[in-house]
Write a protein that binds this DNA or RNA. Structure first.
Ligand code: ATP
Length: 789
DNA sequence: TTCAAAGAAGTTTTT
DNA sequence: CTTCTTTGAA
């Protein structure tokens, strides 16, 4: 953080003199612009006085100002012993134990040093909750209060897990930190794997959807009707909600359903009919039961089942429960306001005999749609009346202006809201910039231009009075680098416009959230093949591969084949393929059987070479030989993802199994390289816990913020408001809210009006930017010259 | 059973 | 504007 600015001054110099390395990157990927070579960075780093939060001196990372995601050694959760320290890292002398505590305010210190068995920290954004949590973990280790592997830190997202892991490592540079860090789901998966005799297969999003469709079709067949698609979707959501609340199809009819459930399923029987948009409870229960049967048959667990089964395991095997309870002395949970029933029960079980610290902010609760509920947060104090309660008041992240605006928004200027405002010492700073643009495209261009202007800094455009659009006048005297910017939006779809505009403008960027990679053409087949090679293939993978090779299985054939497959006992991949070669199923045409046997033979030769070469080569080889590569190359998205996965596969120490493990839970193939000089594009949800000097919240329009489905009333306006609050409070210095007057929805342009949330912010905190006339997009090369020339 | 063409329907957020 | 489903023909 400290070196960001001096380095940048140099960067601007370099850009001007044209002394910039351009790394072309992969075919089709946007080239990276490197201002400093790694060694330059290293040297600069070495001169930097080491602060509380600073990174180990030798780590070749540039000092970008936003929080960082750890480049992934295999998760310490699944592989607690193998994460060896980077050999290049000379052991830095241990920061004097006091050093950990410095840089904390009194309240934070007390929470870090506390001996209480139950601690809760409730505090607003940017008040240093996460910092306190990581400091406590580091303190416990460095003071020898416990061993690192006896500390468990749980988060709700992978991003958060990596962030916490990274921060703890930074605070314990010389200790090969083995603090166990991960998401609830990751933790549960590793436990289930540890205590189960067979490998666990996960039905991720895509597979799950397909299975529920199958179940719905089956139930439809049975009752001689067709379950309409919207119903299937409603049932899908309802199943997930129920499972998160630890309900089963057997007890569900008798139990009070979760609140959101009612939105999806009409509760009174007999009220369903073809015209209604909600299926009835009977249909719901039949499909759910059927879905669970299919999962059981195929040996699959969906995400929700990971938590559920772990709890089940603890209940039925008290010995295992005890082992786990004994394994950890300290359990620390970040963003506790996001907890749902299942996670709550799990937490209670594992923390029975250990110390527990939870931190959170009910105003930042944004995961109601996946069953989280403030009530579990409140329950903590009631269940542990002796818990120590800390609240932090000072925000160290944002300017007072940003805090004021966000506070007005969340309280709707209601003085009597009972909420306590937090304050910042950072001098009030500039107003929020509000920008209206003509269209989605114009919005993206405006943001791009604003970034160019900030990067250019004062000296660059300050003389140019005509340049006023998003970001307003260049009166700032701070210079920024690309990694200082975040562009936030409500839905993933919205990032398309920005990707295009940024490519045209020569602005390097990275997108934090991808569409589900297993939904991409070619990728799912490829991963299926990889699973086969790793002995991890189940019915779904084989079926997918047979489809790809056009084995000729129709509806009936599939059924027969499935029956045969399920009658087989578990076996290794080569053995399974041998059986497929000598297949003899009645009810399957001989021509099909011949084809399957040929495919199986081919697959067998393909997978025999696995492990002989480097992982990356193996990955490429398998794609190429199978012909899946051709399919992948036909689709741009698949191609990009393919390349990203190859990069992931090329990380040191990565194994095929490790790759598949990681992909099973976290399907984002990117490592979100924080070192790179790139603008970050992500959803508002994904931004939680992060911070950036400059934040653009885009698409501030009714229908998006708050989000509403087909112009109806917003489903949960309070949660939408909190989400906007989270997004606003990511900004350190400059916050820019943009909206477009029209936007294409379903292909047709629709008039948009600005978000009602903006009205809750006082005028005197806002300033309005004019839109510069939209010029035709230039060639990327030309734009790059303009930017750097 | 596969392929092509035409038509209908559908856009949150995450593990 | 896409993605899935239905329909009809080879
Ligand atoms: N005592 C302190 N002195 C100086 N800076 C601090 C202090 N505490 C926290 N910070 C800084 O404030 C910023 C926000 O801290 P942190 O991310 O821990 O807050 P948080 O409460 O977890 O926020 P959020 O709820 O938004 O995730 C970080 O940049 C952190 O380094």
């Amino acid at each position: 953080e400290t070196i960001g600015i001096p380095l940048l001054a140099q960067a601007v110099e370099k850009m001007r003199s044209g002394n910039v390395n351009i790394d072309p990157g992969f075919d089709g990927e946007f080239g990276k612009v490197k201002l400093f070579s790694d060694s330059e960075r290293k040297r600069a780093k070495a001169h930097t006085p080491k602060l509380f939060t600073s990174e180990p001196a030798a780590k070749p990372k540039p000092g970008s100002a936003h929080k960082k995601k750890e480049t992934a050694p295999p998760s310490s959760m699944t592989d607690p012993v193998s994460s060896k320290g980077n050999p290049e890292l000379p052991p830095t002398p241990l920061t004097e134990d006091k050093g950990l505590i410095e840089g904390l305010n009194n309240e934070q210190k007390r929470a870090v040093l506390s001996d209480a068995a139950r601690i809760i920290i409730q505090a607003g954004p940017g008040t240093g909750k996460t910092r306190t949590l990581t400091a406590r973990a580091a303190y416990l280790v460095s003071e020898n209060k416990t061993r690192p592997e006896r500390i468990l830190v749980m988060t709700f997202t992978h991003k958060a897990a990596r962030e916490v892991e990274h921060r703890i490592k930074n605070q314990l540079p010389d200790i090969d930190s083995q603090v166990v860090t991960g998401t609830f789901h990751g933790f549960c998966l590793s436990l289930l794997q540890e205590f189960s005799d067979h490998p666990i297969s996960i039905a991720e999003e895509t597979a799950r959807k397909a299975l529920i469709r199958q179940a719905a079709a089956l139930v439809g067949n049975r009752t001689g009707s067709v379950i309409p698609k919207p119903w299937v979707k409603a049932i899908d959501t309802a199943i997930s909600l129920c499972k998160q609340s630890l309900l089963t199809p057997e007890d569900a009819p008798e139990t009070q359903m979760p609140d959101d459930f009612k939105k999806n399923i009409s509760s009174d029987r007999g009220s369903e009919g073809p015209g209604l948009d909600h299926p009835g409870k009977d249909t719901f229960l039949s499909v759910w039961t059927c879905y669970e049967e299919i999962c059981k048959q195929l040996g699959l667990l969906d995400f929700d089942a990971l938590i559920e089964k772990t709890i089940h395991m603890f209940k039925t095997r008290p010995d295992i429960a005890q082992t786990i309870q004994n394994r950890f002395d300290h359990i620390l949970i970040d963003e506790y306001q996001d907890i749902n029933k299942g996670q709550y029960v799990l937490t209670r079980m594992i923390s029975e005999t250990s110390n527990l610290l939870v931190i959170g902010d009910p105003d930042q609760s944004i995961y109601g749609f996946r069953g989280s509920d403030k009530k579990y947060f409140d329950l903590f104090t009631r269940e542990h009346p002796d818990a120590e309660h800390y609240s932090l008041r000072q925000n160290y992240r944002s300017t007072q202006t940003i805090l004021d605006a966000s506070f007005q928004m969340i309280t709707q200027k209601n003085k009597a809201s009972g909420k306590e405002a937090i304050f910042s010492d950072l001098k009030s700073g500039r107003n929020l910039i509000i920008q209206e643009t003509a269209s989605e495209k114009a919005e993206a261009v405006a943001v791009g231009k604003a970034i160019e202007r900030y990067i250019g800094g004062t000296s660059f455009f300050s003389m140019d009075a005509n340049r006023v659009d998003a970001g307003g006048g260049p009166e700032t005297d701070i210079e920024f680098s690309f990694s200082d910017f975040a562009v936030l939006y409500r839905t993933k779809k919205q990032c398309q416009a920005f990707i295009k505009a940024f490519e045209n403008h020569g602005i390097p960027f990275q997108t934090a959230d991808k569409e589900n990679i297993l939904a991409l053409k070619g990728i799912s087949e490829w991963i299926g093949l990889l699973r086969l090679a790793a002995n991890r293939a189940g019915f779904l993978e084989i079926e997918r591969l047979l489809d790809f090779f056009k084995a000729g299985l129709g509806t009936k054939g599939k059924l027969a084949f499935r029956q045969w497959f399920l009658s087989q006992d578990m076996t290794s991949a080569p053995d399974l393929l041998t059986r497929l070669e000598h297949l003899d199923i009645k009810g399957l045409r001989p021509s099909v059987q011949v084809r399957i046997s040929a495919v199986a033979a081919e697959l067998k030769t393909m997978i025999t070479n696995v492990g002989k070469e480097t992982l990356k080569d193996t990955l490429i080889e398998l794609a190429r030989e199978s012909g899946i590569e051709r399919l992948i190359l036909e689709h741009q998205n698949s191609k990009d993802t393919f390349n990203r996965l190859l990069v992931l596969g090329d990380t040191p120490g990565m194994t095929l199994e490790g790759l598949l493990d990681r992909l099973a839970l976290d399907q984002d193939p990117d490592q979100m390289d924080e070192g790179s000089e790139k603008v970050t594009l992500m959803t508002m949800h994904a931004s939680k816990g992060l911070e950036f000097p400059v934040v653009f919240i885009t698409g501030c329009e009714q229908g998006f913020i708050p989000y509403t489905r087909n112009a109806q009333e917003p489903e949960n306006i309070d949660e939408e408001r909190r989400l906007f609050y989270v997004a606003m409070t990511r900004a350190k210095q400059i916050l820019c809210l943009t909206y477009a007057k029209k936007r294409p929805i379903f292909g047709i342009e629709k008039k948009q009006s600005k978000s009602v949330f903006l009205k809750d912010i006082e005028e005197k905190l806002k300033q309005y930017a004019k839109t510069a006339p939209l010029k035709k997009a230039n060639q990327p090369a030309a734009r790059q010259m303009e930017l750097f020339g």
